[in-house]
């Protein structure tokens, strides 16, 4: 039975995260952030980094949570996996949600575990009926267990499955329709996947089910070449946001209005002021658009 979580206020995603820019929280930055009282919309953490019992990670997150809105982002639930969800892991996610009451809670359209192995990568799923049914069942289970609406993130992919029978957009749209989950639109992932599969990112974004989007991700990617010498972009989160991704972001925000927007920078993490500057660049675009829309309304 599929429940419509949108109609249940208790399951609606928290309103505490504003339509401003945020940054991924890094342990090395916490002292700087708290000392300077950084002016930033929110912080996002990878849930798996806070699944220990206690110690400095929880102490730091508690301090940040007292001062800023929080987004909780799972990276290891394997929602696209072939086997049932790991109940222990789902419980840990649920416990973290209760402990920190984040404004947003998200996971990925990907798999990362099979049999007894956890691969620690966001692996791609075929877009076919069997996978769709499984993913929807898993999302229903997550939303029922955690007791709130989740956002599902569109992936960066490097290969396509010959067995796929629908487009990624149709696949995501059907998930939203059946489960009532929201979407996390990662615009860098859109640019990466569209480049890798020779599709138009603007067409993809124009057709994206924006009404379901509760958060945006921006991040850096690394350029490479595939077997035939075609451009192959890798979702590395190791540098500044690319100019092409900024442009797509401006277009999306211009057309749809401001949304909570996260800068992801997880490898070669820079000093805090550099990451903050990226967030401020996103904030300027969000503020411009909000201003322009207010003027239009007058």
């Amino acid at each position: 039975m599929v429940s419509d979580t949108r109609s249940d206020p208790a399951l609606r995603c928290g309103a505490a995260v504003p339509a401003r820019a945020g940054a991924g929280l890094k342990a090395d930055h916490v002292a700087d952030i708290l000392e300077t009282g950084a002016d930033i919309g929110f912080f996002e953490v990878h849930a798996e980094n806070y699944m220990g019992a206690g110690g400095p990670p929880h102490r730091q997150l508690q301090a940040v949570r007292e001062r800023y809105p929080l987004s909780l982002h799972g990276v290891g639930l394997s929602i696209g996996g072939e086997q049932p969800l790991d109940k222990d892991h789902l419980k840990r996610l649920s416990d973290l949600n209760r402990r920190y009451e984040p404004g947003l809670f998200s996971e990925h359209l990907a798999w990362s575990s099979h049999d007894t192995t956890y691969f620690n990568d966001l692996l791609p799923v075929p877009y076919d009926e069997a996978t769709l049914n499984r993913v929807c069942d898993h999302i229903d289970e997550v939303q029922e267990t955690v007791g709130r609406r989740m956002l599902l993130e569109n992936p960066s992919t490097y290969v396509a499955f010959a067995q796929s029978t629908m487009s990624e957009l149709d696949f995501l749209g059907e998930i939203v329709r059946r489960t009532g989950c929201g979407l996390l639109l990662d615009i860098n992932n859109v640019h990466v996947s569209c480049t890798n599969h020779e599709r138009s990112a603007s067409d993809y974004l124009a057709a994206f089910p924006m009404a379901a989007v509760g958060e945006i991700h921006l991040g850096g990617h690394a350029p490479d070449r595939d077997d035939a010498g075609r451009p192959l972009l890798i979702d590395a989160h190791d540098r500044e946001v690319d100019q092409a991704v900024w442009q797509l972001f401006e277009d999306v925000i211009g057309a749809n209005g401001p949304l909570p927007t996260l800068i992801e920078w997880d490898n070669n993490v820079p000093a805090w002021p550099v990451l903050l500057a990226e967030a401020q660049a996103a904030d300027r675009i969000l503020a411009q658009t909000a201003g322009a829309r207010r003027k239009q309304a007058v």
């Binding site: 490097y158 290969v159 396509a160 499955f161 010959a162 890798n196 599969h197 020779e198 070449r225 595939d226 077997d227 035939a228 075609r230 192959l232």
Partner: peptide, 12 residues
């Protein structure tokens, strides 16, 4: 598992 040309893509 293929690239945009439908060919198997080891580098990918």
């Amino acid at each position: 598992l293929t690239g945009p040309d439908g060919q198997t893509a080891p580098k990918r």
